[in-house]
Amino acid sequence: MTALAFTIILFGSSILAGLLGSLTGLGGGIIITPVLVLLFGVDVRYAVGASLVAVIATSSGSAAAYVREGFTNVRIAMLLEVATTLGAITGALLAAKTPPAAISVVFGVVLLYTAITSIKPRPHSELDAHADPLATRLKLNSTYPARDAAGMVRMEPYFPRRVPGGFVVMFLAGVLSALIGIGSGIVKVLAMDKLMRLPFKVSTTTSNFMIGVTAAASAGIYLHRGQIDPVLAVPVALGALLGSFAGAKLLPKAKTRTLRIVFAVVVVIAGTQMIYKGVTGKL
């Protein structure tokens, strides 16, 4: 295959990955590495590097839109970014010591877990009505725009809790993000939604705001280590960016339920293959 043909196919696949990632809300990063490894035969170490770059591109592109809507809690984001960047540096250093086969297996397990959570509808957590002393001292209590029974938008207060627990889970999200080159949005939302009890919209937008910063911390280390091959990273990042923009535009019209099932099936196949390849050493 010529370099031109290779670039075009890579670019096209990445558009598709970005599109599906944004329509299903799972992010393009989750599928980019498996596509590179399984379909293009790229070494896992290069694939993770390219995927990290694509994660930064798509999260920066969409976070720009979210900041304006008033859902993002900048204090929570900054506080938890201490945990995620610390985790990202740890994960990037860990990645150097981890054999590619093990990374492949970890990736497969994360893919299978993602598929399960994407199909199961998420029960919404009850919001807490009292302020938590630590969250108050850290000035994390805030308000968000919510619709009341009459359909009027007004600012509703919320009170985060279990800040230390959220911090620990965020550290792990950072480690995972750096180890396998994903945004770890699912883990981040889990920490903010389930543990810290933030309103759903606040946790998803704040998480998205943080993803780029987390990935930037580990991408720097990947760059130093020579794991970012521009010939792969550039078409992948551009394609994923284009796909995620198109996804955001199509979202109001798309049948997301059907898409989620289709994507979950793809993710399960990719996850099984990654585990198989890792275990049998066919990398």
Binding site: M1, T2, A3, L4, A5, F6, T7, F40, G41, V42, D43, R45, Y46, P100, L223, H224, R225, G226, Q227, I228, D229, P230, V231
Partner: peptide
């Protein structure tokens, strides 16, 4: 890149790392 080397055959190489001038800011 494509105008200079678009016609070359792409080889998916095993991991060798990037040259130093592509790894440091």
């Amino acid at each position: 890149f494509l105008s200079q080397r678009g016609g070359e055959t792409t080889q998916i190489s095993p991991f060798v790392g990037q040259p130093s001038w592509l790894t440091s800011p």
